[in-house]
Design a protein around this nucleic acid. Structure first.
Lengths: 340, 340
DNA sequence: CTGTTAGCGCTTTCAT
DNA sequence: ATGAAAGCGCTAACAG
């Protein structure tokens, strides 16, 4: 049998109350007894039973992380930084991969509640109606919540996001500074706020530079490599942009492939800038100039925010907006008039 | 206050025992009472308190997953498939990312033990002495264990691995069948069993084809993109292999880049085959011919194995060896005599 | 088929 | 400064 608080108490010649006190640093205890108890605990390799503690209302030190897909490098890196910082703060992470399925989302909510997690971090959109309802329920039960990389302006919870407007702005700015004016955007389905913000920033930079935005150069895709390749290909077949702003690194890869198939050289014939700065960006040829999301820092900040709330150090919700960073590699170059 | 088993019992007009029985499907209960109790549970939205149950020796339905780095696409995909199947089987996953640090490894062992997980899956090597000691302790406590993608012949636990010998064999076979004979291998530091097995398979295929292996074409690297690029470059500068077998997809990318810098076309001037079939393989240009590890299936099988053991359905340990699969894309082509 | 009751290991008043 | 005792919510042996 595992050694319990009773075993320790007996061996140390004190009551279990005293042992409990030294474990939790509560109440007053003479240094002498404390030392004795601590020694016995060490000696017996005593570790408190988490469940018994949880049963009396103590924390579980478990945090749920709800993400759409951990195999996606972006979420993988996010999960990693969250887990790392969580570990430092004494929390474990239960991962929940929803696979973009709202049903799994709501299911996980109840599982996590049942597991009595101390808090939950959402890295999914939660657009679905049922999910929203489940979410509100969680809010009502005052389970500490934090949202990452997704804004939910109307709900009271901690939030860490990146400034997508600025990201779009910087991408456009970079291309403009290289002399490009005929710039295409390869976007997704336009549904998320992140996407909308990026294009907003893009437009702003164009406007400031007095370059009109050609709406026919804004190309929607299904956010996948195949779809990106196809749409980028169609674009290049019918028009001649000198630069492309892809809304993530995968789409940028797609654009590179589409260009290469058509005998265009990147960046000589076509500059391409990506978004996210995942591992792909350095893997691809040419290495991608891209707008880096501060993934690592975002992960650290959410978990810190959440931990503060769990520990009751702060009762007001907080929103942290981090800045993107332009990472210049080799997929963009100054505009040169093309020789036909 | 959350509704407890007592609330349900009272409302249903039975004892808590009866309620407990319908929850756990134990003992005999008349269909009538069962129905009544079930209805009340539904009505009150009752969910059992996991900690109270765990305190009496019931399972926690939590499984620990110890991996070196979830942000690595290979482990990310593995984690995903494990989580997915685990969810179906009713388990949650606590992730532990060791970052290849043996200290974190041993630390996680104790954390997981303390959290009373039902079982643990190791996706790390556990080469370190302290980790081994900790591992043996866990074995002694009879916590169900499973190892994935790593063999530990001397320890009694469930294992799921891929046949690396066969993988190396198939890679060589493919290249040989295309007419290549001057084949280079870009390997790592040669320390893991996986690597050794791959090269063993490679040699075997070469031998069967009566093609001598040129040892100077076996190039060690630090398994990183940079290192791979550098070493592959040196190789191409001093020699003229017609094909390269890279020991993972990252190294294959490195080889492609090194070749392109030197004006060589892949696959026309140089065929390259990778290993793993991570997302990189389809992202890169040209898409990579590679030896696919059945990541998804590996994940599913470990968790199934572990679940069986947790549920006590099987007491003998089991080892499952899965087969690799050649995925042909566009980075390899038949050998043509080079025109100088 | 159903109920009574004794723990599981710990926290927390309330005494002393 | 320390201890006795009452739960926390549930399971399971025992009794009917």
């Amino acid at each position: 049998m595992k050694t319990t608080i009773y075993d320790v108490a007996r061996k140390a010649g004190v009551s279990i109350t005293t042992v409990s006190r030294v474990i939790n640093h509560t109440g007053r205890i003479s240094d002498k007894t404390r030392q004795r108890v601590m020694n016995v605990m060490k000696e017996m390799e005593y570790t408190p039973n988490v469940h018994a503690a949880a049963l009396t209302g103590k924390r579980t030190n478990i945090i749920g992380l709800v993400t759409p897909d951990i195999s996606n490098p972006f979420y993988g890196e996010l999960a990693k930084s969250i887990e790392e910082r969580a570990d430092e703060l004494g929390f474990q992470i239960i991962i929940c991969s929803t696979d973009y399925d709202p049903k799994k989302e709501t299911k996980y909510f109840s599982v996590l509640k049942q597991k009595n997690v101390d808090g939950i971090i959402f890295a999914t959109g939660i657009e679905n109606h049922d999910s929203m309802a489940a979410l509100e329920e969680i809010i009502n039960e005052h389970i500490p919540l934090a949202m990452i990389s997704q804004d939910k302006p109307l709900l009271p919870m901690d939030i860490v996001v990146m400034d997508d407007v600025l990201g779009g702005y910087e991408a456009a700015k970079h291309l403009l500074s290289l002399g490009h004016t005929k710039i295409a955007c390869i976007v997704g389905d336009g549904s998320t706020t992140g996407e909308k913000d990026r294009i907003k920033g893009f437009r702003q930079a164009m406007e400031e530079a007095n370059v009109p935005v050609d709406e026919s150069l804004i190309i929607p895709t299904r956010f996948s490599l195949e779809s990106g390749k196809e749409e980028a290909g169609k674009l290049l077949d019918r028009d001649t942009p000198t630069a492309i702003f892809a809304f993530n690194d995968v789409l940028a890869c797609a654009a590179i492939q589409a260009a290469r198939i058509r005998g265009m050289k990147v960046p000589d014939d076509l500059s391409i800038i990506g978004f996210d700065n995942t591992i792909l960006a350095e893997m691809v040829d040419p290495p991608l100039t891209t707008i880096a999301q501060p993934i690592k820092e975002m992960g650290q900040r959410v978990i810190e925010l959440l931990a503060e709330e769990i520990e009751g150090k702060r009762k007001t919700k907080q929103k942290i907006v981090l800045s993107p960073e332009l990472v210049i590699r080799h997929s963009t170059s100054p505009f040169k008039k093309r020789i036909r």
